[in-house]
Design a protein around this nucleic acid. Sequence first.
DNA 1: ATATGTTTTACAAGCGCTTGCAAAAAAATG
DNA 2: CATTTTTTTGCAAGCGCTTGTAAAACATAT
Lengths: 339, 339
Amino acid sequence: MPVNKMPTIYDIAKEAGVSYSTVSRTLSGFEFVKESTREKVLTAANKLGYVPNQQARSLAGGPSNLIGVLVPTLANDYITQIIHGIDDELTKSSYNLILYTTNRHQGKEATYAAAIMNGAADALLLVAPLITDPYLDVLREQNFPYVLIDQADQSDQSTAVNTNNQKGAYEATKYLILLGHRRIGFIAGLPQLNSAIERFAGYKKALADHSLPFHESYVAPGRFTSGDGYTAAQQLLNLTPPPTAIFAANDLSALGAMEAIREHGLRIPDDISLVGFDDVPQAPIVYPKLTTIRQPLHQMGHEGARLILEQLADPLMDIRRVTLDTELIIRDSCAPPRA
Amino acid sequence: MPVNKMPTIYDIAKEAGVSYSTVSRTLSGFEFVKESTREKVLTAANKLGYVPNQQARSLAGGPSNLIGVLVPTLANDYITQIIHGIDDELTKSSYNLILYTTNRHQGKEATYAAAIMNGAADALLLVAPLITDPYLDVLREQNFPYVLIDQADQSDQSTAVNTNNQKGAYEATKYLILLGHRRIGFIAGLPQLNSAIERFAGYKKALADHSLPFHESYVAPGRFTSGDGYTAAQQLLNLTPPPTAIFAANDLSALGAMEAIREHGLRIPDDISLVGFDDVPQAPIVYPKLTTIRQPLHQMGHEGARLILEQLADPLMDIRRVTLDTELIIRDSCAPPRA
DNA sequence: ATATGTTTTACAAGCGCTTGCAAAAAAATG
DNA sequence: CATTTTTTTGCAAGCGCTTGTAAAACATAT
């Protein structure tokens, strides 16, 4: 309900003594404007404190200068870190960020997508959407610029940013093996998630590559929560013989496992080693500090934003695919097994 | 760059056999539309997959259905939790969230505010802005709806949500006193921040109310970071006699202090007690679990969003002020002092 | 049946901007 | 200097919607 009206290009035109279309052209960086005219316009705009009206601009066919970011939830540190990465990249540009949280709007995804393409944003960043289909179809059909972040796109038709989950898991497992462990438990993640599947695959491959047997009983189910990690670790610890090391598919599970291990009267890393995945902010703070596989979350957001920015600058750009490497962060939760 | 154009109210009008303004009135909930007409319109809109164009709507004088959220940064868990609270409340409404991160745009705050009021959003939520003046002036002047979240507004002219920092700090300190501690160190926060000032005041008041002397030397400076907490704790631990308990102005400092205490060969809570402030996600996970003062961050966002929603519904609503209480969360980091 | 009042619909204008097209101005050419 | 070419500017239309105003349709009373 602003009371004072903001100045429009007409006001500037009058002030500068030119026509409004000249003002428009000057302001949106048109080339054929005489230098002296440009300056007159700029001065007038400045004097009047002109700020372009995005709505009008985009309605008239210009860009909205908004990039939509679709996330499943904000209740997750992992998501917010990615958003942070996106935001960092976007602040370098002239784009602002419009955030859509979809968890509450189950089933309305397609409507959302429609609204977004309806001028609400110039492009879309899809962060780890569980169900991508409803969007992707519409998006592709309309040739609307978008990129997938941390999301498996089976069809390979989308520009996307991912981490090398399998490789990360492989390294974690290999690290434990090289430390001398032979019985390595695995706490799995949400089986619907591609990341969980890949991590499990990495674990198995490392075992196989080092001629270690894979036992189904050493795999405990989980859903990436610390509660599940706790339960899973209990289950693993009750095995005979119990594993001498546990690799949890994410840090949250690992943190839960820590608790269970402690309650079991075991010490980390003396009695049992533990590796996580993600490198959440807690990882370096817990005691003992958690050895883990770092996911470059911030960088994923960053890269995703960069890709979309490039695509916006050059709409004809091909579909691209960026895979970021994880990193083994060695801290205090691992040691060779007890003699 | 959508290729297929979205249907407009004209398309619906044709489909339903009415005029476009009837469509508009039906869609924006106007009362004088015959029931049968309304149904015809709704059916047509549905059939065509109509989605209103927000830009056009707001340009024509309607609402943008967007609420701007201005945050200093996203690099902070504390901020993202508040955003989460805001988002939760907003998803219940028809509003979407447009996020502005201001840290990079130092000095451009006023321009930002102008752009927002220029139709980009219907209202503004200011989360813990360090410098509020440039916005507030413009905002108030234009009578634009906004609310301050976790932000001291000296002038008392703004609807705002805050926590009772002083009371929280008072309770933390009192808790330590009742446990029997006499020498209680304090790790301070960023002195520019109102919250830091209030927490310090609460600490002093608790001391005074329980006839305990206040010693300047027991106050170590900090800036709410874990690094500062570490340094501050070292400083306190080197005092003679050292404090038997430390109250850190936020959890991050407390976490840093934990590290320093451990390095000093002291055990928590046996040798020294520790209380934090915030109740960050790490607090219940670190070892030992941190006793702290919970800030209802999510609820703050939630309340802020609620206030703005109410204000939007009734523009004449008076300025309001909500102060949320903190809560002492007792975990494992405190015990009576050594005999 | 006519007059009167009320509900419902249609038309027009305009929100602030972009952009195609044409006219004007400036520069280059003969 | 007239003519052609190029650069610069202005006008008009239109993006999709809301809303004031006026006309049409309907209901009610006379």
